[in-house]
Design a protein around this nucleic acid. Structure first.
Lengths: 138, 138
DNA sequence: ATCTTTGCAAACTTTTTGCACCAAT
DNA sequence: ATTGGTGCAAAAAGTTTGCAAAGAT
């Protein structure tokens, strides 16, 4: 487990709470809020507190294991850093799609050339209306 | 004043508070948080409450006069709907740039063709590192 | 033994809401 | 006179923090 090593290397400690949070994120394999993570973790280990989840997420973020993003309005969601991509978020149904890599690359290039602006791909989010919602009239 | 008419047409009332909020946004001519709007408004009319600002912003949003966006992490910011554009937000210094229109258009087209995803330009925000921050080493 | 992490409770920030009063139409 | 808007205070939602006890190394 790479994550566990990363924690060790930084002088961090591998605790049950941290294991639980990590596996909750891995199992979710998507975009999950702190509370969603908490409810999974808390379901199995009721002694683990919400604030511990937040602190663990913070720690994992510092280690570069997870990343949090604010998709659209509302709370932050976390996802694994190995799954870096750009998010398309439906403003109607909340669906989260991933933008095609080449499209992202292209945009990234152009913004860099023209404005010297360096996209953080993992922090990129576009709101709009997804195919489904668009077709059920709006 | 178009906005005032819009309010009337919906059976809404044009109150001092609403006038104050509207002109605060117009004068700010950028991206302002509810609190920034409040502090301007409150500076001139100390009797106007923060909750009134929020309610007014809500009302104006329903009328399509303003729009709020969550740029990056942190609180919502409001801007006039006539100034629709895509935001580039610097993750370091918080600077907000506007993306070139043609670039946006291109991306918009492609996402539509490929995924059937319809960008809401005004709700679009890209995080990254701006030119300045990028060059002062990172 | 050391020093990080946790549980807990409480604070904080941003936004929303209930209610009685007030004011725009 | 209506009915929508406002002030106020209090709640809600999401996140952070201080502190003493517990646990990983």
């Amino acid at each position: 487990m790479k994550t566990v090593e990363a924690i060790h290397n930084q002088g961090g400690r591998v605790t049950p709470a941290r294991r639980a949070v990590i596996s909750a994120i891995v199992e979710a394999s998507g975009h999950v809020s702190a509370e969603e993570i908490f409810s999974v973790v808390h379901g199995q280990s009721p002694d683990i507190h919400l604030s511990t989840v937040y602190r663990t997420l913070d720690a994992l973020e510092k280690l570069g294991v997870v990343e949090h993003v604010h998709l659209g309005h509302g709370r932050a969601v976390y996802h694994l850093e190995d799954n870096v991509h750009q998010h398309l978020v439906c403003d109607d149904c909340g669906a989260v799609l991933e933008a095609p890599k080449d499209l992202s690359k292209q945009l990234e290039q152009e913004l860099e050339n023209r404005l010297g602006f360096h996209i953080r791909a993992h922090h990129f989010s576009i709101l709009g209306i997804c195919k489904n919602c668009y077709h059920k009239k709006r």
